[in-house]
Simulated assay, not measured.
Amino acid sequence: MTARRFSIASLGALLSLTLAGPGVADSLRLNPKAVVELFTSQGCSSCPPADALLTSLAERDDVVALAYHVDYWDYIGWEDTFGDKGFSDRQRGYAKSWGSSRIFTPQMVINGAEGVVGSKRDDVHDAIASAQLPLNVSLLAHNGMLKLVVPADAALDDASIWLVRYLDRADVVIEKGENAGKSMVYTQVVIDRQIVGVWESETGAEVKLPLEQFDISSGGGMAILIQPERNGLPGPILGAAAYSF
């Protein structure tokens, strides 16, 4: 997976902006209550119900939904076309941060703080209902730039600003493995993630990214996650926003 480099610059002050172009305001998802990260695999026979559930969650205004395809089931007969070792490592990091050595699919992680079986609809909805993100994230699109502003909050720990790129839809015909013969539709498929800045609890953060650096022709969008690390492991997500192309 090839990482893209983004131009990052600090803004001197929060500007009063007019959103560029019709429909841009509708493509922004600000201050959700929950980030739902699904760890899934095309080679997992129990994953399709969770994949479908994530698709429905992505339609909610208060949820940022992301699907990470792991690679640790590839050995059973089908290599996931979106599988990535880094995504498997992210899931392992969550497990280790909770004092567990067990990972499984399908698993949904809510706000980086709680993991539930991704196919158990009631458990997922209950976890989302009680979820909350402490930071408000402002995300504005204007003149070809995406501008991010996150206020300070001295009660929280400093955190990395992650940009997560995803496809809104991918159609896959699975030829081997546990799901052999199935034609699957996957949504919110993560294809890249990287740090684009640092949020400091004492001063906040202001960042801008040029939209021309992204291949918007493939559809999908990007999510911004404010997330600290604790002893090298992912901590609870503090704030989030999403922008759809």
Rank of each mutant, 00 (worst) to 15 (best):
C47D: 08
S160Q: 06
K85Y: 00
A65I: 06
V64S: 10
I128Q: 01
D171V: 14
S88E: 10
H142Q: 15
W73F: 08
V70C: 03
G115M: 10
Y68H: 14
Q107I: 03
N179D: 07
W162V: 02
I76T: 02
I161N: 04
V64M: 08
D61R: 15
C47A: 15
N136I: 02
S160F: 02
S45A: 15
K120Y: 01
L54C: 06
N111C: 09
D157H: 12
S88I: 11
L53M: 13
S45K: 13
R165V: 13
V173Y: 01
P48E: 11
G118L: 08
K85C: 03
A170Q: 12
S130N: 14
K96N: 10
Q132R: 11
K85L: 09
S130G: 06
A152P: 05
K85G: 09
R90C: 04
H125R: 07
L139A: 01
F82Q: 09
Y72I: 08
P134T: 04
R102E: 14
D153M: 09
P48S: 09
K147R: 15
S130Q: 07
A141G: 05
G177K: 12
A95G: 03
A154Y: 04
A129I: 05
D123P: 04
V117R: 07
D51Y: 10
F82S: 07
V109F: 08
P49C: 09
V117D: 14
E178H: 12
Y68T: 08
S46D: 09
G118W: 00
L66T: 08
L148W: 08
F104M: 07
Y166C: 01
G118T: 08
T105M: 11
G112I: 11
G115Q: 12
L135S: 04
H142S: 15
E59K: 01
L140N: 09
I161P: 04
R90V: 11
V173R: 07
L148A: 05
A180I: 07
R60I: 03
H125W: 06
G115I: 02
Y68S: 03
